[in-house]
């Protein structure tokens, strides 16, 4: 999508280009409570390059046990779209880094696409990720989002055929979300060996930055993924660390910040192969 200005997301990738992959940290909005979430988010964004705030949903079919659990806890505390927009607005006061919202489609649809996009923009949000909105169904949202200057990253996965990757990359903006493996979010012992071939296929036809996500569980895996891609998305690992800290009666924010620091270090220690994305 061509625009006169560069979005914060585009600027972020452009600034890191040739240096290292961007670290995109996911956090379930409202977990483990709105105030505590704001503290975790602030500490995460101090280490990461972008923050993805997940709006909790009652039926997160793309998520494994960890994010199911954080979503449940967040919903129990009454958190939803409004609270996540509030969190984004609060975070925006303290940072110029890109903020994304992640939401299953129903809460967005129920809020109203136009109203949601306008409110997200007003809260300083730069992009919205909707995991259950494939290109076939995204036209209305795509138009609305772009009218409000929001990027909409779309997913590709190891089983996405080449021609689909091309179509998806034309409809996506911000970056392409490359799913490492066939499966839901969660922790895995190793990165899927098929990842490099997906990245290679995406590079051959997509002009957007490529961010790798789903299953990136450790700093070591983060570093490996960062060698191939322009960005690495880490979610369940942070949420697991926060849940563990809570269980031990420790500060989840400190735990998560330390892990984010290690994740970022893993990206700084390697020289990435930069693709031909143009922004």
């Amino acid at each position: 999508m061509s625009r006169k200005y560069k979005s914060r997301i585009e600027q972020c990738f452009a600034a890191l280009r040739g240096e290292r992959a961007a670290l995109i940290a996911y956090l379930t909005g409202g977990f483990p409570g709105v105030t505590a979430c704001l503290e975790i988010a602030s500490r995460l964004i101090s280490q990461a390059d972008m923050l993805e705030l997940g709006i909790p949903f009652s039926d997160p079919v793309m998520d494994g046990p960890v994010i199911q659990e954080t979503s449940r806890l967040s919903l129990e505390r009454g958190c939803g779209v409004e609270e996540c927009l509030g969190l984004a607005a609060e975070l925006r006061r303290g940072t110029e880094k890109p903020l994304l919202l992640m939401s299953y489609y129903n809460p967005v649809f129920r809020y109203g696409l136009e109203g949601f996009a306008a409110a997200a923009r007003a809260s300083g949000v730069d992009g919205v990720i909707v995991p259950d909105l494939p290109p076939e169904e995204m036209d209305e949202w795509g138009k609305t989002a772009s009218k409000h200057g929001l990027d909409t990253p779309l997913f590709i996965s190891p089983n996405t055929p080449q021609e689909r990757i091309r179509i998806i990359s034309e409809k996506a903006s911000g970056f392409l979300y490359c799913v490492t493996t066939m499966g839901v979010t969660g922790l895995r012992p190793t990165l899927d060996s098929g990842l490099s071939s997906l990245i290679a296929r995406a590079r051959s036809c997509a002009r957007l930055p490529l961010a790798v996500g789903v299953g990136v569980s450790s700093p070591q895996q983060c570093g490996e993924a960062g060698k191939m891609a322009d960005g690495v998305i880490v979610g369940s690992a942070f949420m697991r660390a926060a849940l563990d800290a809570l269980e031990r009666g420790e500060s989840p924010a400190a735990m998560v910040e330390h892990l984010a620091w290690r994740m970022r270090r893993s990206l700084e220690e390697i020289l990435p192969q930069t693709g031909e994305f143009t922004i």
């Binding site: 079919v61 793309m62 489609y105 995991p131 259950d132 909105l133 494939p134 076939e136 169904e137 779309l154 997913f155 590709i156 996965s157 089983n159 996405t160 055929p161 689909r164 998806i168 799913v179 066939m182 499966g183």
Partner: peptide, 20 residues
Amino acid sequence: GQGHFGEFGGRFVPETLMPP
């Protein structure tokens, strides 16, 4: 052709499920 019954139906699924 896209599985819509009027405004209803369709395919609102993660990309991993689209090819299958």
